[in-house]
Amino acid sequence: MFAVLRDLVRYNVEFTIGAILVAVIVIFACLSFFSPVDPTQVYLAIPDQPPGAQYWFGSNSRGQDMFWQLSFAFRNTLTFGLTVALLSRIISIAVGLAAGYLGGWVDRVLMFINDIFVAIPIFPILILFYFVMRSNLNGFTLALVMACFGWPYDARLIRSVTLGLRHREFTRQAVFAGMSPAKIMLEEHLPYVMPIIFATTMANMIWSIGLEVTLAVLGFTNINIPTVGTTLYWANNHSAMVVGVWWWILIPVIIVVLLFIGLFLLAVSLNEYIDPRSRLRRMGA
């Protein structure tokens, strides 16, 4: 793993740029743990100050220091994105491996469910959830709901890889070595699927963060939790652009765009590692 990372950094510019961007934003988000201010409190800072020495990212019309405010927002947003990615990866791995390896009716049932989830429009469902749960809708619940919609495409991808692996002789060798289906799936086949999982994690995070921002801007999430989306919601609410508090909107947008570019570059460079052939080549086969 370490050698792979080292080679990636050495030979792959996309990876290096992506990794730096994402790392900087993650560090920024982690600063919130040392924040001197409570992000839910208002009017602690002088309102509407432009970026400068005292408030690096300026302050907003609600009297919050935007540096710390955004630090919290990105922490929550990243945690949200990672949670969705993690949960949906677990579902897609389980479904993809089982459908591909076990085949037969298991495959048919799982792929039927898969198709249903592909067909259901996610946006109205999320709004429905908001109306039902209102202020009970915290970040984790939302992540859980979105994870339920974030797996079907990737599960199909994983299934297609395992379908190929199922017919290889080494799989039969494993069967006759007495390995259980679970062991074969997790130990024999998962390594082939791992690169896909890495690459789709990035794409999935871009998708879920984007959707969260959209929902929040429209006010369909819990607006008291600072996230990138709710930051923009409040900015919009106070007509930030109209009153000239541009930094309230521009800075989070720039950081989010940089985050997306970083994740995208990581996904692209990891894509090269999807091909197990290239992995074998690196092992010297």
């Binding site: 002789e169 060798q173 197990p276 074998l280 092992m283």
Partner: peptide
Amino acid sequence: FQNPFEAFNPL
């Protein structure tokens, strides 16, 4: 099995 090069998981 037939093909020794395929007999074991290459990874």
